[in-house]
């Protein structure tokens, strides 16, 4: 089976496609980096879970 030559749109849109690819990879890298920073610092993310996490609820008897 012979391959057909690629459609000219691949050559024409090459610049746009590369640009979008770079943006998406950069976005994924940024979200990953933000996640690493926030998780390693221990931001109170468990507080947003479906179940109340007793350790995350401020104790009214103590000043934070």
């Amino acid at each position: 089976m012979a391959f057909r030559p690629p459609h000219e749109i691949y050559a024409r849109r090459f610049g746009r496609n590369v640009g979008v690819a770079v943006l998406l990879v950069g976005f994924v890298a940024l979200v990953f980096a933000l996640t690493v920073v926030k998780v390693t610092r221990g931001d109170p993310m468990k507080g947003f879970d479906h179940v109340i996490e007793p350790t995350m609820v401020p104790d009214p008897g103590k000043t934070p």
Binding site: L30, A33, L34, V36, V37, R41
Partner: peptide, 11 residues
């Protein structure tokens, strides 16, 4: 802010 957060904020 952590540098990554600062970068994200400006971006």
């Amino acid at each position: 802010l952590h540098p990554v957060e600062a970068f994200a904020a400006i971006l």
